[in-house]
Amino acid sequence: MSGPADTAWRVGSVSRISKETPSAARIVLDVDGWPGNDAGQHLDIRLTAPDGYTATRSYSIASAGPGMVVDLAVDKLPDGEVSPFLVDDVMAGDKLEVHGPLGGWFVWRPDAASSPVQLIGGGSGVVPLIAMLRSHHDTADATPFRLLYSLRTPEDTFFPEVLKDADVDYVYTRRAPDGWPTPAGRLTKDVLAASVFAAAEKPRVFLCGSTGFVETVAAWLVELGHDPRMIRTERFGGT
């Protein structure tokens, strides 16, 4: 599953596309010949216009394991070139060119290791972490898992059906659910410290989101005593 990605582009067929949140879509692709993928890997999608112009972007895979079905979740950046097309224009039955699976570092494989795993996702950065949670659940792996999920509002939750079975701390940055104990606001170092496995437990950390989110949180984790070598990051872009 984690062997070399071959260099060919494959054609994936959109078997389902649905609204995931007010700004994001979930896209399920059937990719003929897909070799399966590890939790945390991504793929490249290449769009081609009639005149041959192409645009290519990376998307994390929310599913893991063998099989030729690949789940994606794409958040729309209003000024973006590719994400508005994927979210608003793609329909079931459409074909998309994909290449992958890619990335051999930001991956989690079931291993029942004694050290716990701390997942930290900001916005759509939760996507590869969803694959890890699913893989952890599906293989009944005994590693302690915890997710810290920073998102704008309750309606922005990705993959709620996966999260409901997981140990999740939510940080709502714009609006919290009614009756939520704390007001909405950005993640702080104190909330981070209170919501993740302590450095003393030597967790492996998978941290993913916009570049600014990852930079900030990674620096806090190091300040809180986490070993930088235990922190794996994936930066989606933006600031």
Binding site: W9, V11, L47, T48, A49, P50, Y53, T54, A55, E81, F85, D89, V90, D94, K95, L96, E97
Partner: peptide, 9 residues
């Protein structure tokens, strides 16, 4: 290969 509906920026 052409992606249906895509024109690009």
């Amino acid at each position: 290969f052409i992606t249906r509906g895509f024109s690009g920026r």
